[in-house]
Amino acid sequence: MEDMAMAERMKRPGGGPKTTRSEIVTIRLEPRLRHLAEVAARRQRRTLSSFVEWAIEEALAQVELQERIGIVEENGQPSFNFRKITVADDAESLWDVEEADRFVKLAGRYPELLTHEEQVLWKLIFESSLWPGDFKTKLRDIIRHRDPATKQESALQFERLREHWTTFKAVAAGEMDSSALPKRSDSDSSLPDIERASEDPNMP
Rank of each mutant, 00 (worst) to 15 (best):
P17G: 11
K18I: 15
I24N: 14
I24E: 15
I24W: 13
V25L: 06
V25A: 05
T26S: 10
I27M: 15
L29M: 15
L29N: 07
E30T: 08
E30N: 15
E30Y: 10
R32P: 05
R34L: 14
H35D: 12
L36E: 15
A37M: 13
A37C: 12
E38N: 04
E38Y: 06
A41F: 01
A41D: 01
R42A: 09
R42L: 12
R43I: 07
Q44F: 07
R46N: 07
T47Q: 03
L48C: 09
S49Q: 03
S49L: 02
S49T: 07
F51W: 13
V52M: 06
E53P: 04
W54R: 13
A55M: 01
I56R: 11
V63R: 03
E64V: 11
E64F: 09
E64C: 08
L65N: 15
L65Q: 14
Q66F: 05
Q66C: 10
E67A: 10
E67Y: 00
G70R: 01
I71F: 07
V72R: 10
E74I: 11
G76S: 04
P78K: 00
F80G: 06
N81Y: 13
K84F: 06
V87P: 01
A88I: 04
D90R: 12
D90A: 13
E92I: 12
S93H: 15
L94P: 01
V97I: 11
A100L: 00
D101N: 14
D101V: 12
R102M: 06
F103R: 00
R109C: 00
E112Q: 09
T115N: 00
H116C: 06
E117D: 11
E118R: 01
E118M: 03
E118K: 01
V120S: 06
L124D: 07
L124C: 07
I125C: 01
I125K: 05
F126C: 08
F126S: 11
E127L: 11
E127P: 04
S128C: 06
S129F: 03
L130M: 02
W131G: 05
G133M: 08
G133K: 13
F135R: 06
K138D: 10
K138M: 13
K138N: 09
